[in-house]
Design a protein around this nucleic acid. Structure first.
Lengths: 121, 121
DNA sequence: CTCTATTATATCGAATATCGATATAAGGAG
DNA sequence: CTCCTTATATCGATATTCGATATAATAGAG
């Protein structure tokens, strides 16, 4: 149940390709949520600048579930028929890894971008 | 000579898909450089954590040049036969745009990631 | 001088993330 | 009843990334 670990996929492409994965995982790390709710959280967290289209979101959720990083459960207790997703322990590990890679990537980009933004120092 | 401007390019995929573009553009914004040198700068700026494989780099440079964002010029004055790239004015505009989008994306992710990293407060 | 590692650029094919369009269904407002 | 929003889903098109591979020139070791 972890055959994806050895599949490959190192290098910088990872933090980029899976950027949306990281967003979803980080949201689910705080509390369980359903697709549409995740979509709204992303929009809110970015002030509407970042969007997560349904055509991206749902295939992504299915993929994460297939990889065992999240688990799903239909629940209509809130009055609405929703598919709630929760992070698995494997998902938590993956999140840490992805977040770490992301930090590296973001830090690198910040180093390269800094001299172009403010040169007050 | 600017047919890419009207092509579309909304949504979050852009700052992700063109992540490497942004790196290359930001490096060339500081001073002209050649492929191999860019590769090394990325490695150095990230402490070796981020890599830009040749199979990614050169097609990327060719694409950016085809889009008119950078210009190339062979020059062996430094003792080595190298293809030097420089940012065009269109490239500078693109860089600003891409950087802005990147900031939005990075800010969003930081908001989502923050509560998972430090909970000391 | 010869041999090798590094520098330097290039291309191809495979893998795959993203997205617009599209479809479906259910709940609430008027 | 009708319409908008919520909510999930899938498909095909597109673009990016990367490993593998090839080539050539240069520097240094022996």
């Amino acid at each position: 149940m972890a055959e994806d670990v050895k599949k490959g996929m190192r290098s910088p492409g990872d933090p980029l390709r899976g950027g949306m994965d990281l967003m979803v995982l980080s949201i689910l790390a705080q509390e369980r949520c359903y697709g549409y709710g995740i979509q709204q959280q992303v929009a809110r967290a970015s002030g509407g600048t970042v969007r997560l289209p349904a055509g991206t979101l749902y295939p992504l959720l299915h993929r994460l579930e297939a990889e065992g990083l999240i688990s799903s459960r239909w629940d209509a207790a809130t009055g609405r028929r929703r598919k709630w997703y929760a992070l698995t322990s494997a998902g938590r590990r993956k999140l840490k890894l992805q977040a770490s890679r992301w930090q590296s990537y973001a830090a690198c980009l910040q180093v390269l971008l800094r001299p172009l933004i403010g040169e007050s120092s």
